[in-house]
Amino acid sequence: MTSSPERPSSPDRRGRVTRRGLLKGTAASSAAALGSYRAGAQEAQGGDPSGGETVHVQLTINGASHEFTLDVRTTLLDLVREQMDLTGTKVGCNHGQCGACTVLLDGVRINSCLMLAAAADGRSMTTIEGLGTQDELHPMQSAFIENDGFQCGYCTPGQIMSAVGCVTEGHAGDEAEIREYMSGNLCRCGAYKGITNAVAQARDDTLEWAEAT
């Protein structure tokens, strides 16, 4: 993988399909490039053919451009979790039924389990790791802590990404609207009251943050 500062603009490289096995070890090197972000990043699968056709994909992930050669079946969820060690994005159902895998794609919240990485070629994705850090939390993250908007914490990254999307989409007008538009994120612990309160509390700061970044 190369981390290029610019998005590739040549349309003919988009979606260029390569035959399997041509580009070995690319996933491993993508993980290595992220090693500075997470110590002990896992080495992804080596050069073994995975059976699927491979495709070249460029994605901006949390602000940095990445290029991959991937099995075409790879979803954004599998890509970030299994190949980039960005494990904040959670897998809860793999079928678009729970929202645990919610990320922002070009600023819009989606279920990363149902989006092929190939179909997101050229686009920009933000995962929970790109939202805020432990030292500098996004206001939505702070509000989730303050309002105890989680218990086990497993659905939380998805809830928070969804909450940011909910606010920027303009669907955090009142509590009833927040509840409706946050209903795509299941929380089995039942932290909904804290979640709703957190979204309401962080709404204005989230809009400010979005403008500032």
């Binding site: 678009g96 929202g99 919610t102 819009v108 919240r109 989606i110 279920n111 149902l114 989006m115 969804s162 999307g165 909910c166 989409e169 669907h171 538009y181 946050m182 209903s183 795509g184 994120n185």
Partner: peptide, 9 residues
């Protein structure tokens, strides 16, 4: 229908 995430795509 569905959820906000699904409706977005």
């Amino acid at each position: 229908a569905a959820s906000a995430q699904l409706r977005n795509v």
